[in-house]
């Protein structure tokens, strides 16, 4: 239930923004979920529904998965993270701390662990719509 902790972070951030912007109700929250963190969308969605505050009662949470794009800093090779190639234990370690990918994965072309996570790392808020 690592997703629960992330859902709490989403609710906390959205609530802070609602306060700052003077929103009475939040209509929609768009969330981008990077594949590297392997977040279970159903669990995240369930946690969000359980954690909803008054201002978030009618909020529609839209979630979009983004592929995790990696780029080697040594040879510039680009590739996508593939969960299927990993053991359960390794996948779980990356789920908790996505940067741990550098411990277990190397560039498929040159073998370097020095690569960028260009897209699709974890949970991001793309936009928040509310009414004042």
């Amino acid at each position: 239930m690592h997703e629960w902790a992330l859902a709490e972070a989403v609710i906390s951030t959205v609530s802070q923004i609602a306060e700052k912007e003077g929103f009475k109700q939040i209509i929609e929250v768009k969330i981008k979920v990077g594949e590297l963190q392997q977040v279970e969308l159903e669990i995240l969605e369930y946690a969000l529904s359980q954690l909803k505050t008054e201002k978030l009662e009618k909020t529609k949470f839209t979630m979009e998965k983004t592929k995790a794009k990696l780029k080697c800093r040594v040879c510039n090779h680009e590739w996508f993270f593939n969960r299927k190639k990993l053991s359960e234990k390794t996948a779980e370690a990356i789920h908790f701390v996505p940067e741990i990918v550098h411990t277990y994965i190397q560039c498929p072309k040159c073998g370097s662990p020095d690569f960028d996570i260009q897209e699709g790392r974890g949970v991001w808020l793309e936009s928040i719509k509310g009414v004042k």
């Binding site: 996505p98 411990t103 662990p113 974890g122």
Partner: peptide, 22 residues
């Protein structure tokens, strides 16, 4: 707990990200 006894070669932004996550 997550890296085991293996090397974790992390650059600055990755250290920041892992720290924020934990």
């Amino acid at each position: 707990y997550y890296s085991g006894n293996k090397p974790s070669p992390l650059r600055g932004t990755e250290i920041s990200n892992a720290l924020v996550e934990l």
